[in-house]
């Protein structure tokens, strides 16, 4: 974890409303674990005060500017424009100065080698799954089930395919892949591989449906959650989610930023999770 000032290497639109930003980040790859995130801030203008959290999509390297120098390490985020902060981000260009706090939070646990791993992504929820797939591919067969509203919400699937991940795509309107919800594909996949572990990130209704499917079959599940965040380091207590066994008498709040964003399903109190944390339904695919 560190707090560093750096610059943008590129910032390109992937599909309508979705962008990929590359940020110069020497040494970042050695620290970052799959599922971790950063708190991002532009240093060019200050229309928004607080930093914004974004999952780390991948770490990469560019050839150095001059011979003899080490390759340029960068981190990549994929983001959807939903409000004030992300609207400003889409206007940023190569060379613009930004600040990154991270890598933050607890990432995914790779689980038992050998057993099949099923990754379920909904829209921009795909982001933390890429580094996870990179890691899991070394030891286990990996399948990605990717869902979105329309074809525009399906991102970067070919990049997973290049890793050797078996991918499956569904859209609500059938404009890409199969028509329907990604959870239907999950049910089918679990019929064939009942011993699989499931990793999910996406909008709250999807996460809840995935939880129901896994819980009723006794399948291990890790989810990456989103929450409104101010600090990202466990200081403000703004990002909490209710942990298993929570009650007013015995509060068990977990910080999404520090104890998460990845949780094992057993850690959470699912009874009102969607109701309290589903505030972003409207803006997410």
């Amino acid at each position: 974890m560190k707090n560093f000032k750096t610059i943008i290497l590129s910032n390109q639109e992937l599909s309508p409303g979705y962008y990929r930003m590359r940020i110069l980040a020497p040494g970042f790859g050695a620290m970052a674990r799959p599922g971790q995130f950063i708190m991002f801030r532009s240093r060019m203008s200050h229309p928004s005060l607080l930093r914004r959290p974004f999952g780390i999509f991948r770490i990469g390297h560019l050839p150095p500017d001059c011979e003899g120098q080490p390759p340029k390490e960068y981190l990549e985020i994929l983001y959807k424009v939903v409000g004030r902060g992300t609207s400003v981000m889409q206007e940023l260009h190569q060379g613009d100065r930004v600040e990154v706090l991270g890598p933050l939070g607890r990432g995914f646990d790779a689980g038992q080698p050998g057993e099949e791993k099923i990754l379920v992504g909904g829209g921009i929820g795909l982001v933390p799954l890429y580094m996870l797939a990179e890691e899991l591919m070394r030891t286990s067969p990996v399948r990605l089930l990717m869902g979105g509203r329309t074809r525009d919400d399906i991102l970067a699937v070919t990049e997973f395919e290049r890793l050797g991940v078996k991918t499956y795509v569904s859209t609500d309107d059938g404009s890409l892949g199969e028509e329907g919800f990604v959870t239907e594909a999950l049910v089918r996949a679990l019929e064939n591989s009942p011993a699989a572990t499931v990793y999910a990130c996406g909008p709250m209704p999807m996460i809840e449906a995935v939880y129901q499917i896994c819980a009723s079959r006794g399948v291990g599940l890790q989810v990456s959650l989103e929450a409104l965040m101010a600090c990202g380091v466990g200081a403000c207590l703004g990002c909490v989610v209710k942990g298993a066994g929570h009650s007013d008498q015995t509060p068990r709040y977990l910080c999404t930023c520090k104890e998460g964003p990845v949780f094992r399903a057993e850690q959470l109190d699912w009874s009102r999770l969607g109701e309290e944390n589903g505030y972003c339904e409207g803006c997410k695919s």
Partner: peptide
């Protein structure tokens, strides 16, 4: 225990 979420909201130059 504290309050239910959402617990924070950014506003103009503040929260």
């Amino acid at each position: 225990a504290g309050n239910p979420t959402p617990r924070i909201a950014e506003t103009t130059s503040g929260m």
